[in-house]
Amino acid sequence: MRRRRLRDAAAALPIGALLIFTPPYMRVFDQNAELFGVPLLHVSLFALWFLGLFLSALLARALIAAEEEDQSPVEAPDADDRPADVER
């Protein structure tokens, strides 16, 4: 289940990034405004870019971890499965 969610996230991230970095949405940040003396367009573009790679890093870690979990050998059945010890 977790693996599937991660897979979906791995698809959603680049698609979302693609939308943000392509025309109609790009226009949103093209305002005549400045932040710390830098045009808002630049600040927002690079901030989003950084956010994207940050999320990508998180996702990559999770994906690798999930894959490792997947590849680890099948665990021995739980101790509960064993017949209860006969005490008497």
Partner: peptide, 20 residues
């Protein structure tokens, strides 16, 4: 102008979609 950014955004998107 800003068009030069696309040259770097393209590969960014591709590596972000590395899983696929």
């Amino acid at each position: 102008g800003l068009e030069f950014l696309t040259i770097y955004l393209g590969p960014t998107l591709v590596v972000m979609a590395w899983w696929f």
